[in-house]
């Protein structure tokens, strides 16, 4: 009972905050709603005994990705009148996607996988089964190739981003900090006999 109460709390808040992301006028508010949504999704993972996935969701998405989102949004200027014209521009495309998604959701919900009682109150494994270890075992044996490919793709993206944005400016003045740190008194002060 406590568990289904928590499931309903997390799931309900998740849906409500997701609505908030879409409907909020202020982009900063939508980012905060999205953060809150991720939190509730992490709560759902915790209810399913998948604490590793839940914590990783918070660590990666809330702790890193959303901070970058917020950095970008902080720099943008919001224009009220532009907002209205862009709504009309994207209405048709967005509508099609929304209808398609709705159909998929209805199809998934009526497929019988999510029958009453199957949510959240799945069988519990107990604390002695460490799902961090289980995920590690599977990732590094059965799915090793896919895991390594994903890692390489991320590394390439990382280096690519650096290569694309780095540029040496001729007029910028750089300081050589190790030279600054190595300076001793003898290099700067000269004793003059008067």
């Amino acid at each position: 009972m406590l568990e289904s109460a928590f499931f309903n709390l997390f799931a309900g808040l998740c849906v409500l905050s997701a609505l908030g992301v879409v409907t909020a006028r202020n982009t900063m508010h939508s980012v905060m709603f999205l953060v809150f949504c991720f939190f509730n999704a992490a709560g759902l993972f915790f209810l399913l005994d998948a604490e590793f996935l839940g914590v990783i969701l918070i660590l990666v998405y809330v702790g890193a990705v959303m901070v970058l989102f917020m950095f970008v949004i902080m720099m943008l200027e919001q224009k009220k009148d532009e907002l209205k014209s862009s709504v009309r521009q994207y209405l048709s495309l967005g509508g099609v996607i929304a209808v398609l998604l709705l159909m998929e959701f209805v199809a998934a919900a009526s497929s019988g996988v999510f029958v009453h009682g199957a949510h959240a109150t799945a069988a519990h494994l107990g604390q002695q089964i460490n799902n961090t270890e289980q995920i590690g075992q599977v990732l590094y044996t059965k799915y090793l190739l896919g895991f390594e490919i994903a890692a390489i793709i991320l590394l390439v993206a990382l280096i690519g981003a650096v290569v694309l944005t780095i540029r040496k400016r001729k007029d910028a003045k750089y300081q050589n900090i190790s030279a600054q740190v190595k300076v001793r008194r003898e290099d700067r002060v000269r004793k003059v006999r008067m």
Binding site: L59, G63, T132
Partner: peptide, 21 residues
């Protein structure tokens, strides 16, 4: 918690939001 160390890393990284906001 079984993932206590990760939880600490995840939660303590969130105070960034307070400062950004």
């Amino acid at each position: 918690l079984n993932v206590g160390l990760l939880y600490l890393m995840a939660i303590s990284s969130l105070s960034v939001y307070g400062f950004l906001m």
